[in-house]
């Protein structure tokens, strides 16, 4: 993939992305936050776009997050999986009545190959590399990573 960047004074910034197949994507990020997307197919003389799309700032960010493999809707927690090659990342929410609530992390037994990366507590800063002393509360989200089997085994035990 090749990315070329150009400043458009008064308008914003233009990114020309050429992917492996030779197709091109031109993205203009306007000062107003608007994004303009144009798609050019490889092999064509490349003068007129096949597709053009306008996105608002919010839409563009959402699309970017989806493209980056990060789904961030809290409702979707539980089946949110992000692939890192053969490894996966899983977000596990502590629901009311869960046996995790009130437990210290030290009491938690993780299957080999699964690792606890962070605890996300609503209204508080993210707790990265949480210490064993952290006590889980209802509403917390555990961020777990590891091999697919280990993470799925962990999910089954909860």
């Amino acid at each position: 993939m090749r990315v070329e960047e150009a400043v458009l004074p008064g308008v914003g910034r233009k990114f020309t992305i050429t992917v492996q197949s030779g197709d091109r994507l031109v993205i203009v990020v306007h000062h107003s936050g608007k994004r303009e997307l144009q798609y050019f197919e490889a092999g064509e003389d490349g003068d007129e776009p096949i597709m053009a799309l306008d996105l608002t700032d919010e839409e563009a960010r959402e699309l970017g997050a989806i493209l980056a493999g990060v789904l961030f809707h809290p409702e979707a927690v539980g089946d949110t999986q992000s692939k890192l090659g053969q490894k996966v990342i899983e977000w596990i929410k502590v629901l009311p009545g869960s046996k995790l609530a009130g437990k210290r992390l030290a009491e938690l037994t993780l299957p080999p190959g699964a690792h606890l990366l962070a605890v996300d507590r609503p209204g508080a800063p993210l707790i990265p590399n949480p210490s064993p002393e952290v006590v889980l509360e209802v509403g917390d989200t555990l961020v777990v990573a590891g091999s697919r089997e280990a993470v799925e085994a962990l999910m089954r035990t909860l």
């Binding site: 150009a6 458009l8 008064g10 308008v11 233009k14 203009v28 306007h30 997307l37 053009a52």
Partner: peptide
């Protein structure tokens, strides 16, 4: 430049290759 920028944005020509040259 002010009028050109406005025309380019209003007429959705910002992604075109000529716009880069014209603005330069």
């Amino acid at each position: 430049s002010a009028v050109i920028v406005k025309l380019i944005i209003d007429l959705r020509r910002a992604a075109n290759p000529e716009s880069e040259v014209v603005l330069g």
